[in-house]
Each structure stands twice: as structure tokens, then as C-alpha cells.
């Protein structure tokens, strides 16, 4: 523990339903170099102001609840150490590009709908193994999609994306990465069904390849890459449909 006089200021965005003006509250929090921003929020909630509302759960970077804007950048608060900012003040705001429900809590419905829209589940083909046998999948086949299966749905990528900012209907990085996760899975046969969503106006072609989604991803998923690959596949599928209009769909 450091000495009591060692403190760090936090400026936190506040909102309660019906409020029309932007509001921030400032708190002084004891500085502890082991603490993450989430620890500071918990300190405020427990000992200073019990009305501060935010989401959190696992505090080990895997549940995806505690994403917020920290000094304007989307981050998991459980992985952002105070020492990265000390002694400068830390500004904590709700994730950008989402509707705010309360203080640091945003509306996730929209994201859940987008996730659902890309059919992120294994769509069986003709050769399903019997109930007592697994699909064979070599480590190399696993490696093809493994990276895209690491998404924790924290939605930091939506907050970093200027396209999602200007075009709220854009399906977005995490959902497209998950579509690719199943498209690239050797056990899956649903690629064509998912292409319908990916090729639509709000799908992959909205993306202008800013690449910031991959920069902020706390799990190294690289959704930007997934989107570019989906673009390539979507273009090939389109070309194929021109050459063979009736294709073997």
C-alpha cells in the first residue's frame, strides 16, 4: 500500500434516465500501482458514492462486461492499470457508439441482434458423424478459425469503429469475425447462408478498413482481417453468381 496522500483523480461520466445535459463527477481515489481502473470504480462504489453504476464480473479479462472509454479509448477496465495514467486524471465514459442506459452502462440489445443476425452457430452439412463420434479436425484445420473464436463480445471494437459511429446499422467487427469463425470451421456448412448477411448493404462492404477494431481488441482476434477476408469471399461469390446464375446453392 502506498501512503494515504497519494491519490489519483477520476472524472466519471454520469447519466440517469431523463437527464438532458452531460454530467461528470470527479472523485479522488487512493493510488495503488496494483490497481486497475475497475478497482478504482469499486473503491468509489464501496466507500464514496454507492450510486455509481457500471458492469463488471470476472475481473480477469474474459467475461467481457467491463468495457468503457478510458481517456477516449475503449478498454477493459479490469486490464487498464492506474499506473498507465498516474498522476494524470483518468476520464471514464461509457463505450462510444452505444446508447447509454445509466452512468457507464450501455444498451447491448443492438449488438446482440447483430450477433444473432450472422447465424453464429455450427450449421450442419451432409456428413455429420454419429452421436458417439467426434468430427475429425486436425490442428491445422483448427488453426484456420481459432483466432476468430477468441472473441469475448466486449464490443470495444464497435466503439473504436468510425463506420459503426456514422452508420449504426453496420453489422460490425465482432459479429463479422464470428461469422468468419464458423465459415472457416471445417465442420460447418453454413457459409452461403451467412454470406447473405455479410454481402448486404450493412455488411462487409460498409467497412473502410480503418483497422482500429483490431488495435483495440483485448484478445487479439483481429476482426479487421476477418472482414477483409469476408470481402474477398463475398466478391468471389458475387462473381460466381454472375457466371453461374443458378449455381449449386
Amino acid at each position: 500500500m502506498t501512503v494515504d496522500t497519494d491519490r489519483i483523480p477520476l472524472k466519471i461520466s454520469r447519466y440517469t434516465e431523463g437527464q438532458t445535459t452531460d454530467g461528470y463527477d470527479e472523485y479522488m481515489v487512493p493510488y495503488n500501482e496494483d490497481w486497475v481502473v475497475l478497482d478504482a470504480l469499486n473503491y468509489i462504489k464501496d466507500y464514496v458514492d454507492g450510486s455509481l453504476a457500471y458492469r463488471w464480473s470476472c475481473r480477469m479479462g474474459v467475461c467481457g462486461s467491463c468495457g468503457m472509454m478510458i481517456n477516449g479509448k475503449p478498454k477493459l477496465t479490469c486490464s487498464a492499470f492506474l499506473s498507465e495514467y498516474y498522476p494524470d486524471p483518468i476520464v471514464v465514459e461509457p463505450l462510444a457508439n452505444f446508447r447509454v442506459e445509466r452512468d457507464l452502462i450501455v444498451d447491448m440489445d443492438d449488438f446482440i441482434h447483430k450477433l444473432d443476425s450472422v447465424k453464429p452457430w455450427l450449421i450442419e452439412g451432409d456428413s455429420v458423424p454419429p452421436a458417439n463420434r467426434e468430427y475429425k479436425q486436425t490442428p491445422a484445420q483448427l488453426a484456420k478459425y481459432k483466432q476468430y473464436s477468441m472473441c469475448i463480445n466486449c464490443t470495444l471494437c464497435y466503439s473504436a469503429c468510425p463506420v459503426a459511429s456514422n452508420e449504426p446499422e453496420f453489422v460490425g467487427p465482432a459479429a463479422i469475425a464470428l461469422a468468419q469463425r464458423y465459415n472457416l470451421d471445417s465442420r460447418d456448412s453454413g457459409k452461403e447462408q451467412r454470406l447473405d448477411v455479410l454481402m448486404a448493404n450493412e455488411g462487409v462492404w460498409d467497412c473502410t478498413f480503418v483497422g482500429e477494431c483490431s488495435n483495440v481488441c483485448p484478445k487479439g482476434v483481429d476482426p479487421a482481417a476477418a472482414i477483409q477476408q469476408a470481402k474477398l469471399e463475398s466478391a468471389l461469390a458475387y462473381a460466381k453468381s454472375l457466371i453461374m446464375p443458378k449455381g449449386n446453392k
Binding site: 455450427l122 452421436a131 458417439n132 467426434e134 478459425y145
Partner: peptide, 23 residues
């Protein structure tokens, strides 16, 4: 247990694999 885990495999769980493709 085994049938439940295989069921989960059929639902897409990315189990780590042996070189021959079995879990």
C-alpha cells in the same frame, strides 16, 4: 459424460486436437 462432450463438439466447441484430428 462422453456423449455430452461429443454433443458439444458437434455444436462447434473448438477442442484442442491430436495430429490425427481426434480430440
Amino acid at each position: 459424460a462422453p456423449s455430452e462432450l461429443i454433443q458439444l463438439e458437434h455444436w462447434g466447441c473448438p477442442w484442442s486436437r491430436e495430429s490425427d484430428g481426434s480430440v
